[in-house]
Simulated scan of single mutants.
Amino acid sequence: MQLYNNILYVGFDDTDSSSGMCTTYVCAVVLEKLKSCGMTLKGEPRLIRLNPFAPYKTRGNGAVSFRLVLDNNQTIRRAKQIILDTVEELSQLNDPRTNPGVVFYQGPMTRDLKEYSMKTVQCMVTLEEAETLAQKIGAEIVKYKNGRGVIGALAAIGCPLPDNTYELIAYREVNNYGKVRRINEDSVRLMDHETYPETFDNLDEGYMAITPHTPCPVLYGIRGETKEALYRAQELIRSEEPIERVMVFLTNQHTDMHLQAIDRIAGIEKYQCYVVKGVVNSNPHVIEGGHVIFNLKDESGEMECAAYEPTKRFRDSVRELAPGDEVTIYGGIGNKGTLN
């Protein structure tokens, strides 16, 4: 493999499942192994959140990528073997919905690759599209099972980041997987008070929001505008259980990259995210489960919109809408065809 500027791009996705593992953790383990062999990482690893309404996503729908500085074919072969062995070892291959894919690429960031990546963040992309592009640009793909993870792996390599944030993720020791996470909540509130708005999404109506609710390796994740803010926040958090490792990712989270502006309701399609303007055409009403529903219309058509229960107090603002109100809606379309 002839390297372009001595850089090997690596991307992978779909290693986790609803019952465990995390693709970012696989990335962190891979990078530790590569660095221990004397290999050099260029820049931060990237965590690219893909289309949040894709029906085949596992949990967070995030793919990872990173750049290695390598100077000879022997090192390239060794790096690839370490990566593939680790992905195979840690992926949840017994889960029918887990279909990892790994991509190795050594060329320039082409226009086709960037456009494909943006499409993967905003729309639906098929595995055939990913494989066709990989062949065109000379990227090497490795598939496990049906290999659907290749879609996100390739997108994570090529995704442009004109705007970005960072996420610091702390991981648990293996013997604590599946147990209650032991984080001092008062320290999280203090951290939020001291670092907001440089960090964000730390609390949800006063309760700790940095810990996941699945048996995955993640202990907590802090999101912020700069790496420096994340490190300051980390110093303020008191963990009452050991931390195995920490990794900071460059990411597209909270950049609204997944949203695409559209000027006609009739043009909206399932499994995509939009910014659309319209007029409220019904009184908001509450349905079973605490969800608030109303209709939105423009000259091209009408559709149902929802503020679901997990949005909590946001629903109070939605309830105040009245027929005739002109609004701009930011949301996505799921399987039921409701904009939320």
Rank of each mutant, 00 (worst) to 15 (best):
A307Q: 08
T24S: 07
E304G: 06
T40Y: 06
V188C: 06
S18F: 04
A153L: 03
L8M: 08
C37Q: 10
I183F: 00
V64M: 10
Q253V: 09
E115Q: 14
G11F: 01
N5L: 13
G43Y: 11
L47T: 03
Q234H: 12
E288P: 00
V150T: 12
Y177R: 04
N335Q: 12
G331L: 00
R232A: 00
Y330R: 14
N51F: 06
L321Q: 03
N295L: 15
G278V: 14
K119G: 04
R97I: 01
T328A: 14
Y4T: 11
T75C: 11
I237E: 07
E32S: 09
I293D: 00
Y207F: 10
D204V: 15
V142S: 07
P242H: 08
M118H: 09
A156H: 12
L259I: 12
D256G: 05
M257C: 09
G301D: 12
D71R: 12
G107N: 09
T58F: 04
P100K: 02
G224C: 15
T23Y: 02
Q74R: 11
N146V: 15
D256S: 12
F104R: 14
P162T: 11
V292S: 00
T126M: 01
M109Y: 13
N335C: 07
N146F: 05
K33C: 03
V87M: 02
L31K: 06
V121P: 02
L47S: 14
R97D: 03
A306G: 11
Y144P: 02
Q272I: 10
I222D: 06
K119R: 15
T195A: 01
D298N: 13
P197I: 13
D192V: 04
K297V: 11
I137N: 03
E140I: 07
C37R: 09
F66D: 09
N184I: 08
C37E: 14
M303G: 10
D316K: 10
F294Y: 08
N335P: 08
I137W: 01
R148I: 13
K42G: 03
R181Y: 04
V125S: 15
Y196V: 15
R78C: 06
N99C: 13
T15Q: 02
A139T: 02
T40A: 04
A134M: 06
T251L: 05
A139K: 03
L8E: 05
Y271Q: 07
N51I: 10
T214S: 08
N73S: 14
P162E: 08
Y171I: 14
T120W: 00
Y144I: 11
Y116D: 06
M21G: 03
G290K: 02
R67V: 01
E269Q: 15
G62I: 15
